[in-house]
Amino acid sequence: MKGYKKYYFNKILWYLLTLVCAVILNFVLPRLMPGDPVASIASQSLAGVTDATQVQKVYAEYAAKFGTDRPMWEQFFIWLGNALHGDLGQSFSQYPREVSDILAKAIPWTLALQLPAIIVGWLLGNILGAIAAYMKGVFDKAVLPLFMFIGSFPAFGMATIMLYIFSLKLKIAPTAGAYGFDLIPTMSWTFVKSVISHYQLPFWSIVLITIGGQGIGMRSMAIYELNADYVKYSRFLGIKDNKIVGYVFRNAMLPQITGLALSLGTMIGGNMVAEMMFSYPGLGMTMLTAVTGQDYPLLSACTLIITIMVLIANLALEIIYGIIDPRVKAQQQD
């Protein structure tokens, strides 16, 4: 147990250090973008005003309100102090809305879309990979290559193709949004059906491009495991194929779990393109708005969430690895 403590302590320490660096970068990088969003807000509201004093006065009011009149290091510590209390500030582009309010409305949609899509994609990919390795034939020569081809599509490309085929041409799927354009959220079957309907294209566009990558990884690992000595020995012993495949699958799964954890951590960053393409109201859309509106507080908050998710996923993975595969812990301790 002593070994575990040291292992976990080291890991957590490094992750905390990474978090500090990431938080600083999340704050600083958006603010290095050219342009002054506060000047935009102030001067847009003063179009037609010819009195320079009045313009300056209003600009100064906004700069003071958003804190952009202070040095960046001071802004950082104010922001950090507030963030630790759950106050992520006010959005520039949607002022005076609170950033936390905007995020609270976006995150559930993203989680509801991305989490199942990645898990389903991962599962289907691994099953396909294992089948391709074990049964070969059409699965290895046609199905897996097909999904690898699909998986090489960029997210926006896949989304566009699906939108074109299923929405515009076949007209069997909606074009945009999370539910019918004529509905208001209710607990009715009409609404639920509409949500499911709108869920399909973004969901499958993520799933389809996930399958190939996961499948090829699983296939390689499974082939490697199938040729391992313990498999041959098991066969000599007359153990049934099903039992052997079970062992092979479990061993081949280890690197795949890494892939899943990383996918979960980066889901918002990578797959948010699908959200944007389908006008799905998640973090992807929120980030797009923040970038185009030079909305520092909102952008910093979005990237902070992504950072924390990636770090948590990685930390959880390393901790779990330490338990499920003691070799990893042992090697790290050397």
Binding site: A173, P174, G180, F191, S194, I196, S197, Q200
Partner: peptide
């Protein structure tokens, strides 16, 4: 089920 439900109705106009 989700696919059937999803593709079965692309718009809520019928239900409406």
């Amino acid at each position: 089920m989700s696919m059937v439900a999803g593709c079965g109705s692309s718009s809520s106009s019928t239900a409406s």
